[in-house]
Design a protein around this nucleic acid. Sequence first.
DNA 1: ACATAATATTACTTGACAGGAATATTCTTT
DNA 2: AAAGAATATTCCTGTCAAGTAATATTATGT
Lengths: 108, 108
Amino acid sequence: MNAQTFNALAEPNRLDIVDLLLEEPLPVGEIADKLKLNQPQTSKHLRVLSEAGLVEVQPIANRRIYKLRPEPFQELDSWLDSYRRMWEARMDRLDDYLNVLQGKKPLN
Amino acid sequence: MNAQTFNALAEPNRLDIVDLLLEEPLPVGEIADKLKLNQPQTSKHLRVLSEAGLVEVQPIANRRIYKLRPEPFQELDSWLDSYRRMWEARMDRLDDYLNVLQGKKPLN
DNA sequence: ACATAATATTACTTGACAGGAATATTCTTT
DNA sequence: AAAGAATATTCCTGTCAAGTAATATTATGT
């Protein structure tokens, strides 16, 4: 897993930008408006997100439309796969415990 | 989604620690050994991970065993749920495209 | 070509954080 | 109680990143 992805998402305003872009691709100005950020900040955050591969840009006329790239999120998803085993193991143990409480299963 | 989680994972050594703890809970000294980190660094990183709720500690005799907490990972998983729609939509469009190529479906 | 809109970049200041070294704390063992 | 092992904390220093303000760039419309 790439730490750069986490780094890009670690900044609250950038996380907001990503969550906003999930709904629809947007130009810089609208992102800034909706999140009440200054335009230069917004551009800089978008640059970080872009270099981390989280967004891509599509110039349309005067404006630059930013939208999410799915790849990093898919990578995150794959990485999380390994961790699902962990919490599922715990859930199983909880299951066992509940079964014991209900007399469905003896204690080991 | 909590940016603190991303922040904790954004530091490469901490990401390594988390990946290591996925295999098994470990005391500080072994974490430091396996990742070739100094003990104070390791303790400090574990503190950050702990404050972010990613790990918990269980003191056993002289040592402190750190292990992962599932909750933040589950939260990450839920957050990613929203994003699955995005890339699945793209996959669908790819599907459509492939079907067009194979003459199975007309262009809209 | 010029004025304007949209966006990007730069310079500056400030705060957060990582690494290293030294030290403090906590627990165990004798 | 003292010594030693395991871990945590503190202090210092250097680096990086974020916010602000000002300016540069790029594209559009007249």
